[in-house]
Amino acid sequence: MTVQAFFVLSALADGPRHGYGIVGEVAELSRGRIRLKIGSLYGVLDRLAAEELIEPDREEAHDGRLRRYYRLTRHGRDALAEEAQLRAATARVVRSRLGLTGAEPAG
């Protein structure tokens, strides 16, 4: 799973979001390190939809335009949980090797 896909799925973990809402949530989750361009976001969303990891939730009218919200599928939730476990395990190993086992990461 690419870093971008991981963060997009993470942005949907606590509820459906529309396209630009995902961009903002990804920026917040990554503490500003990942700022998705819209073209990149829809490349990721297209792939995640094709892999049935996300699906449309609803459409809402906003300023005369329809915003489509996306949510995780059950398969997407499982894939995200598995990836999060893998990353957490890797982080633990790295912290251990760096001698940082006693300290929790800040923030």
Binding site: V23, L41, Y42, H62, D63, R65, L66, R67, R68
Partner: peptide, 19 residues
């Protein structure tokens, strides 16, 4: 084929980033 699926959504997201 890609625009058929995503164009409206992308336009909305682009405009959301400005308005």
């Amino acid at each position: 084929y890609y625009r058929d699926t995503w164009e409206e959504d992308m336009v909305a997201a682009f405009l959301d980033s400005w308005l």
